[in-house]
């Protein structure tokens, strides 16, 4: 069995994001980037599946984008992914574009399982995995907090607003990882050094026969200013008076 783990490069979530003066994008100078935290959870889960099973031949990390994605693929290798592929594309990508590229790549690579994060924490779309599953005509289990192998398929516990939903899906399938699925391991310094020597396969998007046609066009960005009163109250009584008489919410 082969497990494909798509990885997105996103700004470190601890960083303050600044919008360029012309609103065309964010300021990336000096901004540190990381593996999207939900994708790191997907990598970890793929590794745990491989460690528990004699059946897993390969865990392959894949990114779609520019050369800048390489460090995040190296991190996935350092965590323990067997190999990594960069599908090279310089054009801006929306979830549909990434899903189309991954569909084409999955057609070539033939994984039994695609494990990825439930959303990118930069643009919070939460669309790519579902679109990919639709394009492949595979079953999907999104927002997974537990994955079990059962009778040739998967039993997945999903985090939903209604509670924990348990579904069974046949393989091949797309599963997207939620926060509680696991806690990703840290890549040690030695493994980072080793990962540096590994070869990352590069494939131009055009070689997969995919034409990038944007469905979602960014017209502009604005920073969101805070417009809060920020009043410090000295006591509970003062707070209750404010809430009762000024805000009239109690």
């Amino acid at each position: 069995m082969k497990i494909l783990v798509p990885i997105k490069r996103v700004p470190d979530t601890d960083q303050k994001i600044q919008v360029k003066p012309d609103g065309s994008g964010i300021v990336t100078d000096g901004l540190p980037f990381v593996i999207n935290p939900f994708d790191a959870i997907a990598v970890e889960e793929a590794l745990r599946i491989r460690e528990k099973s004699t059946d897993v031949a390969e865990v392959l990390a894949v990114s779609v984008g520019t050369e800048a994605c390489e460090p995040q693929l190296r991190t996935a290798l350092a965590m323990g992914a067997d190999n990594a592929t960069l599908i090279h594309c310089d054009a801006p990508l929306d979830p549909w574009n990434v899903a189309c590229v991954l569909r084409a790549y999955a057609g070539r690579y033939q994984p039994e399982l695609i494990l990825m994060g439930k959303q990118g924490v930069d643009d919070d779309f939460s669309q790519t995995g579902q679109m990919l599953a639709a394009l492949l005509d595979w079953p999907q289990a999104t927002f997974a907090s537990k994955i079990e192998f059962l009778g040739g398929g998967l039993r997945v516990t999903r985090e939903t607003d209604a509670g924990l939903e348990i579904v069974r899906v046949s393989l091949p399938a797309v599963v997207t990882a939620d926060l509680r699925l696991n806690e990703p391991r840290y890549a040690s310094l030695t493994s980072m050094m080793k990962a540096r020597k590994k070869t990352i396969e590069r494939i131009p998007t055009a070689q997969l026969g995919v034409v990038i046609e944007p469905r979602l066009q960014l017209l502009g960005l604005e920073a969101v200013p805070s417009r809060r009163k920020s009043v410090r109250v000295g006591s509970l009584d003062e707070l209750l008076v404010k809430l009762r008489d000024e805000e009239k919410v109690l």
Partner: peptide
């Protein structure tokens, strides 16, 4: 934008050509 629609609607979008935006908080005509 609940887990119900976040699960289902992007999949429908995948079957319908992919023009989707999630978590919309406003709209306008330009």
């Amino acid at each position: 934008a609940t887990t119900f629609a976040k699960d289902i609607l992007p999949r429908a979008a995948g079957l319908l050509g992919g023009a989707m935006a999630s978590e919309v908080i406003g709209h306008e005509f330009r």
